[in-house]
Amino acid sequence: MDFIGISGLVVSIAGFALSLWQIGKARTAAEAARAAAREAVAAVRAIHAVADIQEICGRSRNLFSLFRAGNVKAAASAAFELRELVARFHATDAAHQLASAETWQQAFNSMCAIHDRLEYAAMVKTLNRRERETSLHEISQLHTQFSTFAAVAAEKGVNHGNSR
């Protein structure tokens, strides 16, 4: 009987040690899964940021084309849509990875001024030559800035998955 008791104790200790080892493996696997999930979320956010800034860039190009063609009413509508996109995006972490909060605020303020000017011009149905040239220049500068942001976002998005 004594032998059975000692054998049972040895088996119990071995089983307990095996249980601890399995718990350690499970914890390591859970930590690895959590890290993989964080990395996947970061990759998806990077892809969304690239898509968002590309959409902003495309809308600014559309605004430039409409205004250059002399379609002030359509340009005012395009400016409103672009203003909404920039308003949603410029305060995000993704935006601040592309440029400083101050740079984004300046771009947003410029977008608001352009939109306000175009809405007024569409309403009164007039825009003198100097206002037209100034607006065209400001829209062009804004589009160039958004294009630069888009290039940076694409580069960071492409490199995000290769940072290991």
Rank of each mutant, 00 (worst) to 15 (best):
T103C: 08
R38P: 04
E84F: 04
R130S: 07
I114T: 13
K156F: 14
A40W: 11
R130F: 03
K125Q: 15
E102S: 12
A29C: 02
V41A: 14
E119S: 07
W21V: 07
G5M: 14
Q141Y: 04
L63W: 11
I114H: 05
A43W: 15
K125E: 14
M1Y: 02
D2K: 05
V41E: 15
N159G: 04
A29Y: 01
L82Y: 06
V44T: 05
R38C: 06
A36F: 04
Q54K: 08
V152C: 04
A76P: 01
G15R: 01
E102V: 09
F64C: 07
M1L: 12
A30S: 02
I47H: 15
F146M: 15
R132C: 05
Q141K: 11
I114C: 06
S77F: 02
L82C: 13
F3L: 10
L66D: 03
V10K: 00
V44D: 14
L136S: 04
G5A: 15
C112G: 06
A75G: 03
N109S: 10
G58M: 06
T148F: 13
T126F: 10
L20Y: 13
V72P: 01
I114S: 10
A26G: 00
M1H: 07
L20D: 09
A99W: 07
E81N: 06
E155L: 09
M1C: 08
I4K: 08
T126I: 02
A122S: 14
I56E: 03
F67M: 08
A29H: 04
S147H: 12
A17D: 00
S100I: 12
G161E: 12
A91M: 01
L66T: 00
I13F: 14
A36W: 06
I6S: 05
A95H: 08
K156G: 02
A49L: 08
A74H: 04
A78I: 06
I4W: 03
L20W: 06
D93K: 09
V124S: 13
A101F: 09
A14E: 02
T126G: 09
H143C: 11
H115R: 11
R34M: 10
K73L: 14
A101W: 05
W104E: 00
A74D: 15
L98V: 01
G157S: 05
E119Q: 07
A101Y: 04
N109M: 06
T144W: 11
F80G: 01
A40I: 04
G161M: 09
A113R: 02
A49M: 15
V10A: 09
D93H: 12
T126N: 11
A122Q: 03
L142A: 14
T28D: 13
F149H: 10
H96K: 08
V158L: 13
S110I: 01
A46S: 15
H48E: 14
R68E: 13
L127S: 12
L66Q: 03
R38Q: 07
S163K: 09
S140W: 07
F146N: 05
